[in-house]
């Protein structure tokens, strides 16, 4: 029992850290890349995360939204969020300018099993905005390229104007240590890459299933089709990893909104192995 009636909360996991927007890049009509810097020196210096983890992005007066971190864990001092204008909170973020202050809480959840993946080939498959969380993993692999075997990246978007990070991928296409294949559902005259859904690209790649880990991120309808292709290539269900998007409102396993089967996406995921996902009702 404490005597005082009003308690000041020393540690409050719901309290966002004031964070400055240090750069904004327009990626597409609806997506922007925000570079953020936590203002408090100590918090910023101790902020560590794994690829695949997310933060709660907080704009007081509007609300919070869970956003995957797109930058690599090795990039210190700043984090990047790739955000589509989809609701009130992301809409409010899109109207912010460089130098404005927002809030973040986190990082939360379980990311990709990077230590397990090291020493193996890696196949990464992204659809649409699913490239945002995978971008962190791609950048991390890039930073520690010698730790991984063959790296294959398949990325599909609806049309050329919706391809995210195109400037970077256009450069990577010329590198021989990444196999990168881009595809769009509907091409235009500017498009020189593949056309068709991302699953079609599996005919074009060679996978040594015994030594490959894979990660998939995209719209819910994509998972089953991509996983079918991976299974056809002989990949084990516990080496395929998926990242789920649910309504992670609190981020800390309390509010209940992100329940998937018997687990919570925010603390048990958002990254699950396909074996785990198979055991989650209504997950895929």
């Amino acid at each position: 029992m404490t005597a005082s009636k009003n308690q000041h909360l020393a540690a409050n996991p719901y309290r966002p850290w004031p964070t400055r927007i240090t750069s904004i890049v327009d990626l597409t009509e609806n997506e922007k890349l925000f570079e953020l810097r936590i203002i408090d020196d100590e918090v910023r210096d101790t902020f560590r995360f794994d690829s695949g983890q997310f933060v709660e992005m907080s704009i007081f007066g509007v609300g919070e939204a869970p956003i995957s971190i797109s930058s690599a864990p090795s990039k210190r001092g700043f984090i990047e969020l790739c955000v589509r204008k989809a609701g009130d909170v992301t809409g409010a973020l899109h109207s912010k300018r460089c130098g404005d202050i927002i809030g973040i809480r986190g990082p939360f959840g379980r990311g990709f099993p990077i230590q397990e993946m090291k020493g193996h080939d890696v196949l990464l498959v992204a659809g649409g905005l699913g490239i945002a969380p995978l971008k962190s993993l791609i950048n991390q692999i890039h930073d520690e390229r010698h730790e991984f075997g063959k790296v294959t990246i398949l990325y599909g978007a609806r049309n050329p104007s919706e391809v995210l990070f195109r400037y970077q991928f256009d450069m990577w296409k010329h590198r021989d240590d990444f196999e990168l294949i881009l595809t769009v559902d509907e091409a235009d005259d500017s498009w020189a890459d593949e056309v068709g859904v991302v699953t079609k690209l599996f005919d074009k790649i060679e996978i040594d299933s015994a030594r490959t880990y894979s990660a998939i991120c995209g719209p819910p309808v994509m998972y089953r089709f991509v996983i079918d292709e991976m299974r056809k290539k002989g990949m084990d269900v516990d080496r395929i990893f998926v990242s789920f998007e649910r309504r992670m409102k609190c981020g800390i396993g309390k509010c209940g909104h992100c329940g998937v089967g018997h687990q919570y996406t925010c603390i048990d995921g958002p990254v699950f192995s396909y074996w785990e996902a198979m055991n989650l009702q209504e997950a895929i």
Partner: peptide
């Protein structure tokens, strides 16, 4: 109420909780 906030700098003004004996 979880916290009171200030919009301009996205800062928490207070997050005290009333918990009388």
């Amino acid at each position: 109420r979880m916290m009171r906030f200030r919009v301009a700098d996205n800062e928490v003004v207070d997050d005290e909780v009333y918990a009388g004996p």
